[in-house]
Simulated scan of single mutants.
Amino acid sequence: MDFVLRCEMPVDLLVVSELLGNEHKFSFEGREIVLKLSKRYFSSDDDEPDQEASKIARCVGWSKEPSGKRAVHISIEKLFLTVQVLDSDDIDVASEMVISEAKTSDLFWEKNTPQRFQEAGRKLSNIASRAFDYWCRVTRWKTGLSYFGLPLERHEAHPGWRYLASVDPLEYVASFNDTATIHVLPSVTVQEWEVIQESLQAGVQTSLWIDTFHESNRRLAAGDVRGAYLDAAVSAESFIRHKLMQSVAALPATETAIRKRIESWNMTDVLSRFDKISTLSSLDLSREQLANLRSVFDTRNAIMHGKHVDLKEAELKVMLKSVKALVDK
């Protein structure tokens, strides 16, 4: 018996239909974790549509074939993550508890107290959340889907009904309803699914520059332009400093002065000497890309120093392409 986290996605995961029923298995904090896609999905084209599956997954793309339409793309709303239950969790489970659905609950509570289950459940729930976060970060990394697994709604700072009034503000003439934006992600392919499994199985951790790059894209889409600029700068700087420290890794351990100098080296100075540092020049960035990176750091510095900055979404979108060119190396 496993502890299950049913994950409701803020933005649906789009997959090719071949991935239905597939799973990722990996170890996390000493437990076996399984992330599974349900085989069930709703399709209005089916003779008997699975109505109960409509909130788990839905067919959103078909292909025409001689035998009729074939499901190609499936939009996944709910994912299922299971955490292995260990003897040390002190949850008494037995096979007879799942033989009869009618007796399952009664049999379980005959052998377990609510207090003991709550304590174990809290621990397992926290592990499940951390494992799912890890899976999402690896999935964003290996697919480039920045929005996946993250909240994307633009939060209205001052929510409320908006309308046109003449004299009395309580009497409206016409109400205003803004258009809704629906974000659609590209489909995860079978090849990407396999690459994700390889990384999870190897226990590879995502880098700070990868996580903050995707968070910057997510914040930009959610309307937090200032936060997006800050994360973009953190992404670029952490990667550049990583490359700089790699360049002095072969120096003797006693050479602490040069390491400290590089750790505190101003990013503006680093970028002005980018072509003169072999570790960085090998990244082969264009002049335009370097100029965009300077703009990211200049904007970040202005924000951090309390200056007024006219932040523009369109400009940041261009700059993020240069950050991607850097951190994707």
Rank of each mutant, 00 (worst) to 15 (best):
E119S: 10
E156D: 10
F80K: 05
I91Y: 04
H305I: 09
M267C: 05
S238L: 07
L208C: 05
E23L: 07
H305V: 14
S282F: 05
G68K: 08
V190R: 03
Q51D: 11
N292I: 01
V72H: 02
Q205A: 12
L150T: 03
E32D: 14
L107H: 02
Q84P: 06
D106L: 07
L326C: 02
D178F: 10
V234I: 15
G203S: 09
L37I: 14
A94H: 09
I56Q: 00
S75F: 02
T268C: 03
A120S: 12
K321Q: 15
L311H: 02
K25P: 01
S43Q: 04
N266A: 13
Q197D: 06
S278V: 14
N22K: 12
L251A: 09
R219S: 09
R58S: 13
F28D: 06
Q51M: 10
A253G: 02
L124W: 03
D90F: 08
P49A: 11
E119Y: 05
N217H: 14
A94S: 15
D50K: 07
S207Y: 07
G121R: 04
N266H: 13
P159K: 10
F108G: 02
S125C: 13
V34T: 15
Y41I: 02
R162H: 08
K55D: 11
S235G: 06
S27K: 11
D90S: 15
I262R: 02
G149M: 04
N126C: 05
S44R: 12
F239S: 01
S146Y: 04
K36P: 01
S286A: 11
L230H: 03
H214L: 06
N177I: 11
Q51P: 01
L152D: 03
V327W: 01
T181Y: 07
L311K: 01
R116N: 15
H183M: 15
T113G: 08
A314C: 09
R6Q: 12
D298R: 11
R116A: 15
A221R: 05
P66F: 11
L320F: 06
D211Q: 10
S105E: 14
S100G: 07
K324Y: 10
G306Y: 06
G149R: 00
N22L: 02
A120K: 04
G121Q: 06
E153K: 14
